[in-house]
Amino acid sequence: MEEEWTPKITLFCCNWCSYAGSDDAGVGRKQQPPSTRTIRVMCSGRTDPGFVLTALMEGSDAVLFTGCHIGDCHYISGNYKAKKRFEMLKEILDELGLEDERLQLQWISASEGSEFAEYIRKVTEEIKAIGPSPLRQEWMK
């Protein structure tokens, strides 16, 4: 039997909220599909669109921007800037022809482990539904 395909999702987490939320999900043993690869940055404002583009070109089936809720940024307004960059990136990727689901933004607080796990489950299902990224290298398949 062929093994079920697990998408590969690059997850950018800010140190203070979403990474902590992801830790919280772990502490709470909130089971998630093994789809994400986390990259810790201090603030969502550090998530360079260049990293996102690289992840997508490397074959990432989706990239998630995560950080503190608007207003809760540990660094005052880094997440606001992240949001702006995300919006611009979103337009570019849409124009390039990438599906909407492949770039997402989600705010997760340090105490939202359950929400975090739920979100990862949801995203993984969404990506499974649309299949592997068309940017994956052929030899990867």
Partner: peptide, 14 residues
Amino acid sequence: FKNNQILAQVKHAF
């Protein structure tokens, strides 16, 4: 958290 450091992480996930 230099650009090349994070890029290396991104690339090595794949």
